[in-house]
């Protein structure tokens, strides 16, 4: 019997990421996170635990924050995927959340930052008037080891308040 290696069962997948189609070949077992990082070259999506707890790999899938380490690339076909690389404007202007994280010192080592940015982008886009308590609850989805969270919360709140003003 011929042995079948995992690579032999790779399937073609089209991923639409930040408005651009990426045609890649991915084994069915390949996660969306690995595919984004290694096939699409988008290494801003980080892997902190690979079991769905830390949220460093959070991306938006049709506007919803998801753990890209818990999804297979083949599941994301046909969806609009957004990653941290797509947040800034085409001219390089930082997204208001990126500006706010900078101004409020919402990052130190920066490893969790892409996940928090995508989580908070998803939260504010779907619930622009989210209350303080609900916002804290939403942000408790992700882990940060450096900041103690306070400045992350302040950053996101400031963007919410500015948009509502």
């Amino acid at each position: 019997m011929t042995e079948i290696s995992p690579a032999d069962v790779a399937v073609p997948v089209v991923l639409r990421v930040n408005g651009t189609d990426h045609r890649v070949s991915a084994e069915p077992r390949r996660t969306l996170a690995d595919t984004l990082r290694e096939e699409c070259g988008l290494t801003g999506t980080h892997l902190g635990c690979e079991h769905g707890v830390c949220g460093a790999c959070t991306v938006l899938l049709d506007g919803e924050p998801v753990r890209s380490c818990l999804l297979f690339a083949v599941q994301a076909q046909g969806a609009e995927i957004r990653t941290v690389e797509g947040l800034a404007g085409d001219d390089g202007t930082l997204h208001p959340l990126q500006e706010a994280f900078w101004r409020h010192h919402g990052l130190q080592c920066g490893f969790c930052t892409p996940g928090f940015l995508m989580l908070s982008t998803g939260v504010l886009e779907t619930r622009p008037d989210i209350g303080d308590d609900e916002l804290r609850e939403a942000l408790s989805s992700n882990l940060c080891r450096c900041t103690g969270y306070q400045t992350i919360v302040e950053a996101v709140r400031s963007v919410r308040d500015a948009a509502g003003a």
Partner: peptide
């Protein structure tokens, strides 16, 4: 003052070991 380290990290274009490939 704001940190000079931040823009790269905020844009997701920092380079951690796992990003080298």
């Amino acid at each position: 003052i704001r940190r000079v380290e931040d823009p790269t990290l905020l844009r997701g274009v920092g380079m951690f070991v796992g990003d080298i490939g």
